[in-house]
């Protein structure tokens, strides 16, 4: 046990593992690049769609059912199912980056869409009506009232998506895309268990960092007024920050 940990630590600290195209920085960079691109694409699709559905309350059933369907299909299956299409579109990269990217985007869309939709839907109707009554246009209602009030929930969805993507992006190595998953695949293939476990630790560490980062973003984007309302004014008054 102890020896195993020492083996993993010495693998992680070995200078040779920190350079070159198979080094930790290069693999981490690939991992992050894939995760960021997937998250960004998912954001572009899911946030506007979720806000729109939440605001208009139209198409919510369809969206939720599609999201649940997407949730039910494992990412690995998505990758395999995407292969024929991506290969026919781009024979060179169709085997590597595209299938994993598609799987990651789908994975990320679900929590972002669901949270954006429910976050906006659950905003107090009285407040929305008050905004309308004072002469907000529909887009002003959305931007000035629904969005800021739903921000904690929306960013919560993005946070979940980001962590899931970072943890699952290791699958990319199966189809020959790099990333930290490489260390897992190679570790198993070469029976280098120190390499395997180092990969596991690196991926877990990255996922935890992502979680911490987005938790911070969530806190920063949430109006202090909402935090006070949730924790209670008395508590806030007694311990000012």
């Amino acid at each position: 046990m102890m020896e195993g940990l020492i083996d993993i630590a010495s693998w992680l600290l070995h200078p040779a593992h920190w350079s070159g195209p198979d080094g930790i920085p290069a693999r981490a960079w690939e991992h992050l690049a894939l995760s960021s691109v997937a998250l960004l694409l998912a954001l572009l699709v899911a946030v506007p769609l979720g806000l729109l559905i939440g605001h208009t309350r139209r198409g919510d059933l369809l969206a939720i059912n599609l999201a649940n369907l997407a949730r039910a299909v494992p990412s690995y299956a998505v990758m395999v199912m995407a292969l024929p299409l991506t290969l026919s579109l781009d024979p060179r990269n169709g085997l590597t980056i595209y299938p994993i990217a598609i799987a990651m985007v789908l994975l990320a869309i679900v929590p972002i869409l669901v949270n954006a939709y429910t976050g906006v839907r659950d905003v107090d109707r009285e407040l929305v009506e008050a905004a309308r009554a004072m002469g907000c246009t529909e887009s002003q209602v959305l931007r000035q009232v629904e969005l800021p009030l739903a921000i904690p929930v929306i960013v919560g969805g993005i946070r979940t998506a980001a962590v899931q993507v970072v943890a699952t992006a290791a699958l990319g190595a199966i189809l020959g895309y790099g990333g930290l998953g490489r260390h897992l695949i190679d570790g198993i293939a070469r029976r280098e268990y120190d390499r395997l476990w180092a990969g596991v630790i690196l991926i877990a560490g990255l996922a935890i960092l992502t979680e911490v980062l987005f938790a911070d973003v969530q806190r920063r984007l949430t109006s202090p007024g909402l935090r006070i309302a949730r924790t209670g004014a008395a508590a806030e008054a007694s311990e000012p920050r």
Partner: peptide, 22 residues
């Protein structure tokens, strides 16, 4: 309708204030 509403003050119970705004 937007102009009309901006020219009419509307007061409801205290829940009508926006909690995220000062």
């Amino acid at each position: 309708v937007i102009d009309l509403r901006r020219s009419i003050g509307y007061v409801i119970q205290q829940t009508g204030l926006f909690p995220h705004q000062t």
